[in-house]
């Protein structure tokens, strides 16, 4: 049994009996890893929740100073990239190499657009003195509460920063997968690495789905 599967894929490692077991194990491993990521971001979501409930008004004020259009644009860009990613995985499932590479390429492009918008947005923050530190100042907030506004931006930078870092890692994975697909390493039976890269990419998307309303959309009606 083991030798058949071996001949079939050439990718079965020695500790497994069947290709199905190997795929199953890899997928499970990725899911557990994603759970660790949930807990990782969870720590920051907790910090956010605590401070937002302590200082609701300042958080609303600070959140309203961020440009909502960048955030919404980036959310749509990421959703598009998830869509192209799932089509790439589908292509791989069907064994269509060209389709896979094209959609992986589109995913990569959209990921880079996201990072570009993000970089631009951060650049603006530096100009507006919204970066935490000695020079921090947010208009419309009394001097005594500047610190609390700074807390919001600390969280903003920590959360979006770590999210962007995950995007960079994801982009690296996508490039690797494009290269391996080009080299013909995957077949319809064995495309687990692409599948797993897809899981990671979608997960990073989900994190952003939560970051967007939490950071950009706090009580917008009060701010303006």
């Amino acid at each position: 049994m083991a030798s058949e599967a071996h001949a079939e894929t050439l990718a079965l490692r020695e500790q497994f009996d069947t290709a199905a077991q190997q795929k199953d194990v890899a997928t499970l491993g990725m899911w557990i890893f994603l759970i660790t990521e949930v807990m990782f971001f969870g720590g920051m979501f907790l910090a956010y929740t605590v401070y937002r409930s302590s200082y609701p008004n300042v958080f609303a004020r600070a959140s309203s100073s961020i440009n909502v259009y960048y955030g919404a644009l980036n959310t749509v860009v990421l959703i598009c990239s998830s869509f192209t990613m799932v089509l790439a995985v589908r292509g791989a499932q069907l064994g269509k190499r060209i389709t896979t590479i094209v959609f992986l390429g589109l995913t990569l492009f959209l990921g880079l657009v996201f990072l570009g918008v993000k970089a631009f947005e951060w650049g603006e923050k530096f100009h507006e003195h919204h970066v935490p530190g000695p020079g921090f100042h947010l208009a419309g907030v009394p001097p005594g509460l500047q610190g609390q506004a700074q807390l919001f931006f600390s969280l903003y930078f920590a959360m979006t920063g770590l999210h962007a870092l995950h995007m960079v890692v994801g982009a690296g994975l996508v490039i690797t997968m494009m290269w391996l697909t080009y080299k013909g390493r995957f077949t319809a039976e064995y495309m687990t690495p692409i599948d797993i890269t897809g899981l990671y990419w979608h997960f990073v998307d989900i994190i952003w789905i939560f970051l967007f309303p939490l950071l950009y959309l706090v009580d917008r009606h009060m701010g303006k």
């Binding site: 998830s82 869509f83 990613m85 799932v86 897809g198 979608h202 998307d205 989900i206 789905i209 939560f210």
Partner: peptide, 13 residues
């Protein structure tokens, strides 16, 4: 956001 998460997880993932 939770609804969106469920959509992504159930279908895309």
């Amino acid at each position: 956001a939770t609804a969106k998460m469920l959509l992504v997880a159930l279908f895309f993932m």
